[in-house]
């Protein structure tokens, strides 16, 4: 596992060693979705598109 801080809530996320580019990971605390990307041999996370929830009337 590789530890990467959640860009949203600062939680330490455990990213599998074999995570591939484009794989979606979700923060267990804040629920943010990220797309795994590899840059210069390091894992970075970029926000993944998701459909928003609308409870409004």
């Amino acid at each position: 596992m590789v530890k990467v801080r959640c860009p949203e809530c600062d939680k330490d996320l455990n990213i599998p060693d074999d995570a591939v580019d484009g794989e979606i990971v979700t923060c267990p605390d804040c629920g943010a979705n990220y797309e795994v990307t590899h840059m210069d041999g390091k894992i970075t996370l970029k926000p993944a598109e998701s459909v928003g929830e609308d409870w409004g009337e």
């Binding site: 809530c9 600062d10 979700t26 605390d29 804040c30 629920g31 943010a32």
Partner: peptide, 18 residues
Amino acid sequence: RGMYRNEPFVRLIRDTKG
């Protein structure tokens, strides 16, 4: 997080899911 990261009895709850 800075205050509670290592606290065993404070859980931070601001989840967008569930």
